[in-house]
Amino acid sequence: MKQILVDIKKCLACKSCEIACAVTHSESKSLIGAVLQDKKPRQRVYVEAGDGISFPLQCRHCEDPRCVSACMSGAMYTDDQTGLVANNPDKCVGCWMCVMVCPFGAITQDTEQKIAQKCERCVDLEEPACVMACPTKAIKFLDIDVFSKDARLQYLTNFHLKEEGK
């Protein structure tokens, strides 16, 4: 199963992923339509920076999700078919337990409905919007093993060039 994985060295903090994510969650799905609509759409990916790196963070759709364990209404669940973590808006009561236990801060508030909102990984799109929007291809949508193999090859190249660890 493909995952959203980030090449940390390549993120320039341009926030193109944030814009694309918000547009995907708008009525028209277009930038211009999204800007003109009354209730502004909100993104579910956040570019944060610290200690010399910047990084786009969104729900990691954990295998053993703390947010699901913490949810007392049964709103947050792992979808059997997609394997993705999702929030059922009809069941969510806005207690914010999920927000407190998420180690990534990937869950925020839908301020209108007063419920939790997070990345749904664009299940209707071929690739998540943030992945398509990333101009440096820092955000990737790959099988874990493919990403790991790329990392191993990169490590070997750097090892050969005596630049280990770079």
């Binding site: 341009c14 926030k15 193109s16 944030e18 814009i19 694309a20 918000a22 547009v23 930038l31 999204a34 800007v35 502004k40 759409p41 909100r42 993104q43 398509m132 929007a133 101009p135």
Partner: peptide, 29 residues
């Protein structure tokens, strides 16, 4: 493609070196 949303909307400023600055068109940033 896709081209930068901030640029398309005209809300990126590079006029001084404290920037570049961008305004969140959707209000939360």
């Amino acid at each position: 493609q896709p081209q930068c949303g901030f640029g398309l909307l005209g809300i990126c400023c590079r006029n001084c070196i404290q920037g570049p600055c961008r305004i969140d068109p959707f209000g939360s940033g």
